[in-house]
Amino acid sequence: MRHLLSAGDLTRDEALLILDTARELAQVGERSVKKLPTLRGRTVVNLFYEDSTRTRISFEAAAKRMSADVINFSARGSSVSKGESLKDTALTLQAMGADGVVIRHSASGAARRLAEWVDGAVVNAGDGTHEHPTQALLDAFTMRERMGRLEGLRVAVVGDIRHSRVARSNVLLLNTLGAEVTLVAPPTLLPVSVDAWPCEVSYDFDEVLPKSDVVMMLRVQAERMNASFFPSAREYSRRYGLTAERFARMADHAIVMHPGPMIRGMEISAEVADSARSTVVEQVTNGVSVRMAVLYLLLGGAIQGPGHQGETR
């Protein structure tokens, strides 16, 4: 594993190694000294072309907990706003000696392009409507911790699938790990290619709900919507929102997940979001552990690639 670009690139063994590593690293978050010396001397650049608080802070905390140097680069107020291309920015970072680049970009495929240009490891932190592999990993980690297994787990992913990189990464990863995913959305919010995805599709939330072990709610991404995909927010909420009344019809052991940020009252009601079976806060905590695992596995050992070969100390 040299980069983490797509959840679909991961083999079952690689994915489980990341989850197992994350479980051990989660202990560090409970200690008084929340720091490991493992990535001392490594530089991680957070290259964020899109606004993000939670993912950037999570990667920053993960890198810092392992003693890496972190450089935050956001497009706003930087050379990018002066018109610099992704490639030139990448080459600049390369020249500064970045060992790893965490990239968030509004264009699908940006991370993969970047990986062709830089020597260091590239981690996709969300590229357009394409993928968000570390989110899928932290979701899988959370499910595994809560439910004790992933094999055969029935997961419903509900909401704006069309604009969601989280949904695609989750479908690919959960399929690799043996869970059964059902996407639930109005037809207008499903991507065109959904038939090719390794999952079931349903338009009827109430039918899928009682059969699910995990219900993952997605935010309606108004900022990516260039047309009207449903008549009104109220109508959407009535058919696809996780209300208290629907929550009561879930299986007793089932959990509710949300990658955040949540719009309370839209896709999820406040009392469901705050219930003990909602894992929203755990997901944030687990995100740091999973990102530590990814950074450790990509940067912690010998780095294979031009410019790093035969590194000795």
Binding site: T21, E24, L25, T38, L298, G300, G301, A302, I303, T312
Partner: peptide
């Protein structure tokens, strides 16, 4: 650590 690929962790 840097002489070999990243190792699996123990508990």
């Amino acid at each position: 650590l840097r002489l070999a690929p990243a190792r699996a962790l123990g508990r």
